[in-house]
Nucleic acid binder design. Structure first.
Lengths: 243, 243
DNA sequence: CGCCCTATTGAATATAATCAACCGCCGTGG
DNA sequence: CCACGGCGGTTGATTATATTCAATAGGGCG
């Protein structure tokens, strides 16, 4: 019955989710019925880059139709870190608009599919569909808010709280896509999670043990079960001052 | 000759910079000469909020015409932190577009002025000025990149590197406005800087001493002089692994 | 001139990083 | 089918870094 079991990507599911009629962003893609904005469907194999920093810009954003990705950015020193994970129904390359060269590298965490959407179509759709443009502004603004929230978390929280936040974020996003909120698979290696959370891989490993001991989570390889949502939320939200 | 001396804000300068013709964002504000997008000029006194989290949205962004601001955001716990500083020629509330309620609180660090620009005008200017719309997307995308860069810094750097980054960022932005790159005033209290950098105020204080001892900076109250730009850049960019 | 708030300094403690070794899963090939 | 090898992940001990709590100093504003 439940199509949400954490098996490896089923091709039937891909075909299902790939249909444009069911895409959450159907309105954004097709501002007018005659003029589909979608460029083309692109398949990206596991551990393969969708694009890389320094490349000539593709002048497009991407809607993830299946699978998931990580986005890597290089600091002034050249050292790269994971700045985000992008799953199905979410957008990639919102941070590349207007650039001549790509500023980030985006890599598929599993075999995935995306829809390419040219900036031009977004910016000057030509006809009277103002919703799409206002929607675009709202979409980008929302991404700014998300980034600010992440940055705020990085400033204010300890490692254990970050892990809790991260797991809850994944849970929520899975749930928003119609999947279980309490059980899912971590498509990314531990090192990527640690990089995203701004902690060492060793520290992450220890924290997983700690949360497991506290019966907040259950982890087997990359499969996670959240056993105590409220407690995780309290941990994530709870400040350094438990008073 | 040089209008860039780091004196306290002269009212003559304010009047000067306030003129719309000289505003960097003149094109964005006035897509067509007949239809100025600017709502009205708003004065905000020191330590006064431009808007507050929870308020009904003003459906506008703001161009800072003089002075500077801090943006505060609340985490899930309710604890608030500084997520950014905004100076002259920069935009405020890019992260509020499309929201019914304000998500942040913005407070003036000194007596300041802003121009209010309605979303509507940005989204559907009506006429053929596609530059303004593409420019808006690029503007928002750039804000995403800046936030990502900040988040990356928070993940990868130690406190001293963060302080160096922060000072260099201020330096650069002052310079971009035609002022000295090596001398400026910190309009915000130490606590706000510490909050933004994700460190304690005590730690910040010690680091200022440290950088002063290393002859990288000179600080008197809130007036800063950067004595060794290259060394600061190396410190900011230099990773934890000095190899 | 004095008060109060901001900032600084000091000592003890907590937190996570680092370095190094080890484990175990998984794919490979015999 | 089982042995091997490699990589991702875990565990342990030590060290570095920044926090916390507490007390003090400085400066702006009344």
């Amino acid at each position: 019955m439940n199509p949400h079991s954490a098996t490896t990507t089923a091709s039937a599911d891909i075909a299902h989710q790939t249909s444009c009629e069911r895409c959450r962003h159907h309105d954004l893609c097709r501002p007018t019925p005659e003029k589909p904005v979608v460029g083309r469907r692109i398949r990206v194999a596991r551990n393969t880059p969708l694009y890389q920093a320094g490349e000539l810009a593709s002048n497009s954003i991407y809607a993830v139709r299946s699978g998931s990705f990580k986005t890597l950015r290089a600091g002034p020193d050249g050292e790269t870190g994971v700045v985000g994970f992008t799953m199905n129904t979410e957008f990639l390359a919102l941070n590349e608009i207007g650039q001549k060269q790509q500023t980030c590298t985006v890599v598929a965490l599993e075999d995935s599919e995306v829809c390419k959407i040219a900036w031009k179509r977004l910016a000057c759709g030509g006809h009277g569909e103002s919703l799409s443009r206002a929607g675009m502004n709202a979409l980008l603004s929302g991404e700014i808010r998300r980034e600010q929230a992440v940055a705020l978390m990085l400033r204010n929280t300890h490692a254990d709280q970050r892990l809790a936040s991260f797991l809850l974020s994944l849970s929520q996003r899975h749930h928003a896509n119609g999947y279980s909120a309490s059980q899912f698979r971590l498509q990314m290696p531990r090192g990527d999670i640690a990089s995203f959370l701004g902690i060492s891989a060793e520290c992450l490993s220890r924290l997983i043990v700690q949360l497991t001991r506290q019966a907040l989570i259950e982890v087997r390889q990359r499969d996670v079960t959240l056993l105590n949502l409220p407690a995780l939320q309290q941990l994530a939200g709870g400040p350094s001052t438990p008073g």
